[in-house]
């Protein structure tokens, strides 16, 4: 009896400790970036153009580039993902075909990001001839985050009670009327949650944009979606590994990392606020 209690106490403590370690790691990363990055953070850093291949000046082009890419990726992936999810949950019949689609989606989710980069290079940059551009990069990122958005949209749609669908159909509504008026409005908050996860990934990934859009050093702002841009994660990579004076530009690296972190938080925050606003209207 006594032994059992001791074992249990030990196990629970262990589980708790492991959880704390996870939190500690995340906390350490964030605090470290804040402490070392804050001194670099200034108006000039955020709004200025880089000089001497990024050793001095600001990172405005990279910030603008990342915002462009994330916005582009989301505006392609969200409609595509939501539409696929609607088809899969509401229309596709149970069976082999649906299983294959499901398998394809989970495989897509597991594809390494550098493979997405190569895919984007082959299809968008070369085959479609978009070149290294915001368009190519956004599309590549869109395909990368598509599975996340499809899966969470499917979950959101399935969470809408069957009784609401039946209630609508029983009143003589068509299937599409039912989905548009009595399913989709309630599923939207959940769909936004999926896009939140996607946004974080799209903003932070380096590999997919490496081959499709990111410029090594381009101290100007893009004029169209066919322009190349700098991007925060790639800029960070360049500063850390490719820069001739990598040690000297350490503060710039931390500053860039902090801005990227803040940008992701900002994106997530606005998505969460949007989601909550939707959710407030719904109760069942």
């Amino acid at each position: 009896m006594r032994n059992k209690k001791v074992t249990e106490y030990f196990l629970i403590s262990l589980i708790r400790l492991v959880t704390y370690i996870v939190v500690a790691i995340v906390g350490y990363i964030i605090i470290d970036i804040f402490i070392k990055g804050l001194p670099t953070l200034s108006w000039e850093f955020i709004s200025g153009f880089p000089r001497r291949s990024g050793a001095e000046g600001g990172i405005l082009p990279a910030i603008v580039g990342t915002i462009c890419l994330v916005t582009g990726a989301i505006s392609v992936a969200l409609p595509l993902g939501m539409t696929s999810a609607i088809y899969l949950t509401e229309y596709a019949k149970q069976g082999r075909f649906k299983e294959i689609i499901g398998l394809a989606i989970s495989t897509l989710a597991g594809v390494p990001s550098i493979v997405f980069g190569l895919f984007g290079l082959g299809l968008f940059v070369l085959f479609f001839g978009f070149g290294a551009s915001i368009l190519s990069g956004s599309l590549t990122l869109a395909f990368m985050i598509l599975p996340t958005i499809i899966v969470s949209s499917e979950e959101a749609l399935r969470a809408v009670p069957v009784t609401l669908r039946e209630g609508s159909l029983a009143l003589g509504a068509s299937k599409w009327q039912t989905i548009a008026r009595n399913v989709l409005p309630y599923a939207l908050p959940g769909m936004f949650t999926g896009s939140i996860l996607g946004i974080g990934r799209a903003a932070g990934e380096t590999a997919p944009i490496l081959l499709t859009v990111a410029a090594f050093y381009l101290p100007k702002l893009p004029r169209s979606i066919f322009d190349q841009v700098m991007a925060l994660p790639y800029h960070l990579y360049v500063l850390a590994t490719q820069h001739p004076e990598a040690e000297k530009v350490l503060p710039m690296q931390y500053g860039t990392a902090l801005v990227l972190l803040l940008l992701v938080i900002l994106f997530n925050l606005s998505a969460i606020i949007l989601r909550n606003r939707f959710r407030k209207k719904i109760q069942w």
Binding site: L164, S168, G172, N182, Q283, W284
Partner: peptide, 14 residues
């Protein structure tokens, strides 16, 4: 439209 239905568990729309 001609044949209305009321379900076991009331299902008001939100």
């Amino acid at each position: 439209k001609k044949v209305g239905m009321v379900f076991q568990k009331s299902n008001p729309f939100p």
